[in-house]
Amino acid sequence: MISCEIEKTLRAPGGEMKLRLELEFKKGELVTLYGESGAGKTSTLRILAGLLTPDRGRITVGGRTWFDSEKKINLKPQQRNLGFVFQDYALFPHMTVRENLEYGTRSREDKGLVSNLIEMVALDDLQDRRPETLSGGQKQRVALARALVGKPELLLLDEPLSALDAKIRTRLQDAILALHREFALTTLLISHDLGEIHKLSDHVVELEQGTVLRQGSAEELFLRNKISGKFRFTGQVLNIEATGVVHIVTVLIQNQLVKVVAQEKEIRDLVVGDRVLVASKAFNPVLQKLDS
């Protein structure tokens, strides 16, 4: 069980903002923080990591107190057993991939783990390369593997996939999920991508102006009308076109364009750029094998 109840006044470009949070999640869960930029998501991760000190509150992880303003407990980042993947990956430029991972080892047995991790994220061929020679997706894999070297209780990921294209994103989502299960991690992730949130999270917390707006499962949060359809995807509206009686909405799902016929009432509060769920029930989709 991880519980966090904190208050912190943040100095943002638009003036001061009060971050006031009560979060609680179970061990082994994958929790996503969602919300507009400036809502306090990154600050929340930094507070959990000990990189930012809250004004008041308590943080306990698995029965151990990491922070308690009343008892004047504040563990340093070094004393909190956690992994952090930074938005800019923060790989050490002067070390090779393997050296980056080995930097986080504390004992001999950890060295064995380094080899395992390199294999798990498929970096064998790249282990002697410097970060500057790697692509974004490869760097992300190194950062992810490096965060796990210390066998953390808590894994914090700050928008880990936002800079990557759709195909690599999907592969890395699978990697995150696999590692999360393999290491029985408790993971806290920041993401803006509804599809990604839906795919990865057990629990979603939506922040607004430094407070929790809503929380629950991805479906509870993002589906106002529950649809029990099995065939559904999330995407982004690219175009809405009126053609007499009906409207044709062009939706980008992953990296495919899909045209959907919509009724007047369905598009009433829909504008280009909105995230939508495309679902269908009571029809039979055609399945055709693709030549590979």
Partner: peptide
Amino acid sequence: SPSLKEASYVMGRSRLTTLWKVLLPN
């Protein structure tokens, strides 16, 4: 980038080790 320093701290390394092994070489 401040995250270099922070990454080292999160990995359990002291300020001195971080200065010596991460900051100065860069």
